[in-house]
Amino acid sequence: MKKNLFILLFLILGASKVFATGEPSTYFQIYVAPNNDAVKRDVCLIVTAIYDDTLFEIIDDDADGDTDDSKTGILKAGQSYILYIKDNGINDDARYASGGVLKWDGDYFIVKSN
Rank of each mutant, 00 (worst) to 15 (best):
A49K: 02
P24A: 13
D66Y: 11
V47C: 01
T48W: 03
N36T: 11
Y81W: 04
A38R: 10
A20S: 14
D68K: 03
Y27T: 13
I85A: 04
I82S: 09
D87P: 01
A20I: 12
D69S: 04
S16Q: 13
D52Q: 08
F56D: 06
D62N: 13
Y51Q: 15
I90H: 05
S16C: 10
Y27S: 14
S70I: 02
Q29I: 13
I46H: 01
D42P: 00
Y31M: 10
I85R: 01
A15Y: 05
I30H: 08
D37G: 06
Y27N: 15
T26H: 10
D42G: 01
I46S: 07
I50V: 15
D61S: 11
I30F: 05
V18Q: 09
A63K: 03
Y31R: 08
G78C: 03
V32F: 05
I46F: 00
L9R: 08
T48K: 12
A94T: 13
G14P: 01
T67A: 09
L83D: 05
D69I: 02
I82V: 15
E23S: 14
Y27P: 05
D92V: 00
D53E: 14
L55C: 08
E57G: 01
V32S: 06
G89R: 07
F28H: 13
A20H: 07
V32R: 03
D52T: 09
S70V: 09
N88E: 12
D62I: 07
S80Q: 03
G14E: 08
T67V: 09
V32M: 00
D61R: 03
K71C: 07
T67Q: 10
D61A: 11
L75C: 04
A38N: 10
A77S: 15
D93C: 02
K86A: 08
T67E: 08
T26K: 10
F10K: 11
I82F: 04
A49H: 05
Y84M: 00
E57R: 09
I90M: 06
D53A: 13
G73R: 04
P24L: 12
D53T: 09
Y31L: 10
I59S: 00
F19I: 12
Y31D: 09
K71T: 06
N35S: 14
L45S: 10
A63N: 08
A38F: 11
I74L: 14
T54C: 12
N36Y: 09
I58N: 04
N35D: 15
Y51G: 15
S70G: 07
D92C: 02
G89L: 07
D61N: 05
